[in-house]
Amino acid sequence: MSIKLCEQAFDPWREIASYQAGLASLAGKYGATGVFVGSMRDFNRGDGVKSMFLEHYPGMTEKQLQHIVEQAQAQWPILESLVMHRVGWVKPDDALVVVAVWSAQRGDAFDASRFIMENLKSRAPFWKKEVLASGAERWVEKNTDGYQRQPG
């Protein structure tokens, strides 16, 4: 298990490939890697967003992320996992979060990565302050449920 909080921009695909390259002892043991990459949008709640500040509680945030991954490990046969999350200033199109789970079977990898991501969004102590296209600032009061609903 690896949990990283990053103040600098990162390439999620390079990070996943690099981490996986270090898993030589698991070669031939995993048949699936469940991956989620989240990026910053340039809109939220109907407004344009030009940047965002991601604040966290150092020490507590990592501990909560570790607890979430441990819960996933207790439910699914995870061989390895990587969780990376940006903190500090981000701009649209920046990668915000990476969750990667290695397991023998795809269902376990998919389910565990989704569990980690959904719990990260609802339980990890991160706070977001958006800078809108208008220049106004606002704190994000709650995360979306992750679905875009069509009008009508």
Rank of each mutant, 00 (worst) to 15 (best):
R106G: 01
V140E: 01
E15P: 06
Q8P: 01
F53K: 08
G34M: 05
Q150F: 10
A95F: 08
G48K: 04
W13K: 08
G135I: 08
A133E: 15
V35L: 13
S81F: 12
H67G: 08
F53Q: 11
L23H: 09
V49G: 00
V101A: 02
L65H: 03
P151M: 05
W76S: 02
A72T: 05
E55D: 15
Q71E: 15
W127M: 02
S39W: 02
A112V: 10
K63N: 14
M40W: 07
G146H: 06
A112I: 07
Y30R: 02
S51P: 04
K29A: 13
I78D: 06
R123K: 15
R41L: 10
D11Q: 04
F53W: 15
S2C: 01
V97C: 05
L54G: 00
S39V: 14
L96P: 00
L5P: 02
L79W: 13
R114F: 11
I3T: 14
K4L: 09
D93A: 06
A74M: 11
D93P: 01
I116G: 05
L82G: 06
K129Y: 00
G34N: 00
L65V: 05
L82C: 03
G135V: 05
R106A: 14
Y57T: 07
F115V: 04
W127Q: 03
V69S: 03
Q75M: 08
E130F: 00
E55S: 13
I68Q: 08
K63F: 02
N143F: 11
A136H: 08
G46D: 12
V83M: 03
L132V: 11
G146C: 07
E80V: 00
M117H: 03
S51K: 10
L23Y: 05
V99I: 15
Y57M: 01
S81A: 15
D108V: 01
I16G: 07
K128C: 05
L82P: 01
R138K: 14
N44A: 14
G38Q: 04
T61E: 11
V35S: 09
R123E: 10
E118N: 14
Y147L: 12
R123Q: 14
G46R: 05
V140K: 07
G34T: 09
A17V: 11
G28R: 09
D111C: 00
D11R: 00
M1Q: 11
V83F: 07
P58S: 04
K128H: 13
M52I: 07
Q148I: 11
E130N: 01
K121V: 08
W13G: 00
L82N: 03
R14F: 12
D145A: 06
F10G: 06
V98H: 04
A95L: 00
